[in-house]
């Protein structure tokens, strides 16, 4: 199976291990991620803060390009890209006035969009299209004994829900459990990490990040599995500040769920780019490699 793929800016560099491991895992699942040619930045949460309609217009260019490729569905790994593209698409499909304006913009650029695309996140595709039984069939080294806190964050299911609960999503738990790992109870799983504000005003949002790390530690987790480049960045990068803030050692490795999937499928650490995180994961993941 082949699927059109929207990578997004952050997986080109900051979150390159997410891109690499997602592609490797999809290949194992007999699914090829085909990159959308000449995609542009979706605008994330930031463009919207200055121009509303233009932000949707940028996002819509990607939708138009995807339709030009003949796709009915496009998958992305970044929840911010997912929700941005999804939102433009949703407003386009449900609000004719909005759709008309977007189409005027696209026409000026020689493009058009018919509203026929479906935007999906990779976790949804893995669970609901590929199926966890297919994942289980490919497990070579079950992650027995590994305790994982699954952190869903905000935008995977908010505000549109779609494939899981907005308040208490479990889709990552299900994926990680299918790998043979133990999923610890993690009540903060859908609480926000501070998003972009943690980058700009980290001194103010350290308490938010600290709460997330402490809860995972106290739940007995060996690592936190994430599905978002910004969650990864905030939880991984700011651990020194959190330790100072909490006055203790709350260090815990942050990994992408696709990296854990790859490990269980027998891929090497190098193929999954494990080791690019700042808080090293060897101690807890080394034995599965």
């Amino acid at each position: 199976m082949e699927m059109l793929y929207y990578p997004g800016c952050s997986v080109q560099y900051t979150a390159k291990m997410y891109d690499t491991s997602a592609k490797a895992v999809c290949k194992k699942l007999d699914m090829e991620l085909k990159e959308l040619p000449d995609w542009n930045c979706c605008g994330a949460t930031t463009y919207m803060s200055v121009h509303e309609l233009v932000s949707h217009g940028n996002s819509a260019r990607n939708l138009a390009l995807a339709r030009r490729e003949g796709a009915d569905e496009m998958v992305t790994v970044c929840p911010a890209c997912y929700i941005t593209l999804y939102k433009t698409n949703e407003y386009f499909q449900t609000n004719p006035e909005f759709a008309d304006m977007i189409r005027q913009g696209l026409k000026a650029a020689g493009l058009d969009y018919d509203g026929g695309l479906r935007i999906r996140h990779l976790v949804d595709v893995i669970v609901n299209t590929v199926g966890l039984d297919e994942v289980e069939k490919r497990i070579k080294k079950p992650l027995e004994g590994l305790k994982v806190a699954c952190y869903h964050g905000c935008m995977l299911t908010r505000p549109f829900g779609g494939f899981d609960s907005e308040e208490r999503p479990v889709i990552l738990d299900r994926i990680i459990r299918s790998l043979g790992a133990e999923v610890v109870e993690y009540p903060l799983t859908a609480k926000c990490c501070g998003g972009m504000v943690t980058n700009t005003e980290s001194s103010k949002t350290i308490p938010v990040v600290a709460g997330l790390l402490r809860a995972a530690k106290e739940a007995g987790a060996d690592c936190i599995a994430v599905a978002c480049p910004l969650c990864h960045m905030n939880l991984d990068f700011y651990q020194p500040e959190v330790n100072r803030y909490l006055g203790g050692d709350y260090s815990i490795p942050i990994v992408y769920f696709t990296q854990l999937m790859g490990l269980a499928m027998g891929l090497s650490q190098r193929e999954l780019e494990i080791g690019l995180e700042l808080v090293p994961s060897d101690k807890v993941l080394g034995k599965y490699a």
């Binding site: 000449d38 542009n40 309609l53 233009v54 949707h56 940028n58 696209l106 650029a109 493009l111």
Partner: peptide, 18 residues
Amino acid sequence: VAGLSEMRKIREVLERLE
């Protein structure tokens, strides 16, 4: 992005509509 000019044209129209 090769289609930068496309992005610019979309921007101009939508800024006006906004």
